[in-house]
Write a protein that binds this DNA or RNA. Structure first.
Lengths: 367, 367
DNA sequence: CTGTTAGCGCTTTCAT
DNA sequence: ATGAAAGCGCTAACAG
């Protein structure tokens, strides 16, 4: 007992702090309180509570049960701020996605959360609103919490983001895209190839004069990739290449954008027979606009989307689209994360990995 | 210098830990490093970095600038785990919503985040999947991080949740509902009253045989409230009261549920002239099903939803719905949070508040 | 398997 | 305005 000015109270009785203590304690029950009650050291309590199936060291099972039940009785809640501080393991994974309001990303978060469920890792979550400076700001704030891994969406980041991540020396996963020059790990698929494949299948069905609609490329790298896939495919197939409509400026591209785009397309290129949209949302908007104007889908114009959002199967006619295993991206990211974090905790480093997530074209009544 | 086994290195040069140190330092640049470089105490650095417009005490402006630039140069990133631990201020707000995949809640999160933007508070975010035990589990995990406030959705919680919150002695906000017996603060509106008002307006338009469709009440308290509002209104208006269809069992109620429900309704009560849905998603599904079957909307059947989701204005005909200021709920919650947390930090406690958020009925072509 | 000791990086408290 | 000392609640490291 070397604490100066000790109030003299045993650690068990939480007397109000003496008049001369340097620092005000929380007031909450601490590990030391639980230990004192049981007449053991707090280290033993710590071991009992921290014990994982993986960690062999811990208290004996009988004692462990007593510790657990006493903790419960006393209303003890471990202070992870303190434990993170002491162990240098925050237990956080930082996750940045472009938008909350997008069920594709929501499904990815879902899959990731499930994969991390039994690990004690918590997700520190942020959304960038498709804005690079916002991403940078959020990441900067998150890094003050010392996350054990960082997950980003896509490969488009400010230079300072790469710099910060390098300095933080933490495992990084970029998801949802296949990247030329990933920071470290990647989990995703080629948005360009998926769109190209969609175009090829529409071509096989007989469509020859296709148009593409999407948002401004700078703010939506995934959309830009899809557009490139479209352009490559129509070129390869010898189809007209100039039928591109850009809406914006703000992502996400909305249903209303789709309605507006389909009108533009039909005005500029009246013989267009298929419209490929950057996502299901504008595709749906386009479909509804066609119904308003009495343009038969798919007879007058075929429409295709991307992402297989709920609306794409609920609408009438149902939308042809690219089906992505969004939850699978999250799950794969989670599994990768576990291995990467375990490696770091053991003083190693997981070799950079690239995980390909398959996609599928769903041909439905809109084409 | 009372540290035993000190390696002898000054704090400036980050030599690898000596062979006999008890604890491995992080390796990252610390406040002490920055201070040493400037020849000042780390306390001064701390003050310079923590200085808020609110806090008057801090370093002189000139020194502060030097500290800031040196920090940047050295790549110093403050360790909020340590500062939270030391100050007993986690800087976290715990937020629990039922679902990520719901733009209403997404908008609320957005509003909340914006309101908290300049406070240094970070959101610790979890979604319950409309499941009370999941909510309890998530909250338990979050409380280990000592959040300075907790935000829940709705008023339906396990008893243990109320107990944990009471023990944590932290400000609590329940949002999205008006509650009989709130835990503490409330921000929301009456789902029952909003639905009742919708029914009254449909009645005024001439609809007389209305049906309601929703999910199982146990898993969706907000849906249950809406149903109660429907029942109260049709009773008050002397309309048939038994036309209730329950789909499920799993919330959220989907577009497909709506398609299925509208068929059931028209089979059981063929003279139904209006269908009120628990949210826009099933309302949209019902609308599409009507189109598939050639039932004219609103001539044969009027359809109304709830929530003013994007699809409700994009579809054709557009859906009559209840417009909620979702972001406003988030914003109001954020403002309340700021005051509540400030109070606690000053050793006070904010009196329990109830903030009413107005709603609006949008009559559109589907009715 | 259990205990002892030291200390993580910051902020509080008190002194100057 | 600045500094020195102490300590927040936990876990690493070592000893037994």
């Amino acid at each position: 007992m070397s604490r100066k000015f000790d109030s003299g109270a045993s650690t068990e009785a939480k007397a109000p702090a003496g008049p001369r203590t340097k620092k005000q304690p929380t007031g909450a029950v601490t590990m030391a309180d639980v230990a004192a009650r049981l007449g053991i050291s707090k280290m033993t309590v710590s071991r009992a509570l921290t014990r994982t199936s993986a960690r062999s060291r811990g208290a004996s099972e009988e004692l462990r049960q007593r510790i657990l039940s006493t903790s419960r009785e006393m209303g003890y809640v471990i202070d992870r701020t303190a434990s993170a501080f002491s162990s240098k393991r925050s237990g956080f994974v930082a996750l940045l996605i472009p938008s909350l309001n997008n069920s594709n990303f929501a499904d990815t978060v879902h899959g990731l959360t499930l994969a991390l469920e039994d690990t004690g890792l918590q997700v520190l979550f942020g959304y960038t609103d498709y804005d690079l400076p916002t991403e940078e700001r959020l990441l900067r704030a998150m890094l003050t919490r010392r996350p054990e891994a960082v997950v980003l969406t896509g490969g488009s980041h400010l230079p300072s983001v790469r710099k910060m991540l390098k300095a933080a020396a933490v495992p990084v996963v970029e998801m949802w895209d296949m990247l030329q020059d990933p920071i470290e790990h990647t989990v995703g698929f080629s948005n360009a190839e998926a769109t190209a494949e969609l175009v090829r299948q529409l071509h096989a069905k007989g469509y020859r004069r296709m148009a593409f609609m999407g948002g401004t490329p700078e703010r939506d790298p995934r959309g830009a990739e899809r557009r490139q896939g479209f352009e490559a495919a129509v070129k390869e197939l010898g189809l007209p290449q100039d039928r591109i409509v850009v809406v914006g400026p703000t992502p996400p591209v909305s249903m209303a954008h789709g309605a507006q785009a389909v009108v533009q397309v039909m005005q500029r290129w009246p013989d267009t027979d298929a419209l490929v949209c950057v996502s299901d949302h504008p595709a749906f908007g386009a479909l509804m606009e066609c119904q308003r104007r009495g343009w038969a889908v798919p007879q007058r114009l075929a429409i295709a989307g991307f992402g297989s959002f709920e609306v794409s199967t609920a609408c009438h006619p149902r939308l042809t689209t690219v089906v992505i295993d969004c939850a699978g991206i999250g799950r794969a990211t989670g599994e990768l994360l576990k291995r990467a974090i375990t490696a770091v905790r053991n003083g190693k480093r997981l070799e950079a990995e690239t995980v390909m997530i398959p996609f599928e074209i769903a041909q439905r009544e809109s084409s």
